[in-house]
């Protein structure tokens, strides 16, 4: 189990350009492949990872690791996630200080940025499905859509803090769904 976690998150760490929501589908694909947890439970974990300080992808990895193999699993996942970055940063610092001015590197990022955006859009669709946001028309679906719309509005127009949005949505959920 520990080796499997290490392998999974090492590869994830290696491809995690941006390190944020774009990497969530990468982790989700692995988690579902091994049958570690359902997409819905994974969404809960992302919510908690998003509320915690620190990068969301690393937090998610620590969380999955803990759920699968306790403290040791969490430690191995964190290590596996950071190790590729650490090695690459050292490599770049030592040899390729002008990396960002290399035309090949710039071209790669020209394609990468659009794909990363595509991944984030994909993540949004993927998580909207099991949430029930796209279910048949009912009062319940409507209330979920209202939470979604109001959260998005607060983030874009009111500059609300992500952790604040999650906490508020949780309180609304507690009030209406129990």
């Amino acid at each position: 189990m520990l080796w499997l976690l290490f392998k999974t998150f090492f590869i994830t760490g290696l491809v995690s350009f941006g390190g944020g929501y774009a990497i969530i589908p990468v982790i989700e694909a692995e988690v579902v492949k091994y049958g570690w947890m359902s997409t819905q439970k994974f969404t809960d974990i992302i919510a908690i990872a998003g509320m915690s300080p620190g990068p969301i992808a690393t937090n998610t990895a620590i969380f999955v690791g803990y759920q699968m193999a306790g403290i040791a699993g969490a430690a191995v996942s964190a290590l596996a996630m950071v190790m590729p970055s650490l090695l690459l940063v050292l490599l770049v610092a030592l040899f390729f200080y002008k990396l960002n001015h290399n035309r090949i590197v710039q071209s790669a990022f020209y394609g990468l940025r659009s794909v990363v955006l595509g991944l984030i859009v994909f993540a949004a669709i993927k998580f909207a499905l099991p949430t029930g946001l796209m279910n048949t028309i009912s009062l319940h679906t409507f209330s979920l859509l209202a939470i979604f719309a109001f959260s998005l509005f607060s983030l874009i127009k009111r500059n609300a803090h992500p952790a604040y949005v999650i906490v508020m949505a949780g309180l609304v959920g507690m009030a209406f769904y129990s």
């Binding site: 955006l117 984030i120 979920l144 939470i147 959260s151 949780g170 769904y177």
Partner: peptide, 26 residues
């Protein structure tokens, strides 16, 4: 459980927001 029922759509909003913020750069 009820809290997470409410949080899930907010997480989707967070992800959409991430895409929104990134669109100009990408």
């Amino acid at each position: 459980e009820a809290a997470f029922e409410g949080i899930r759509p907010a997480v989707v909003a967070l992800i959409v927001f991430a895409a929104y913020k990134m669109r100009k750069g990408a």
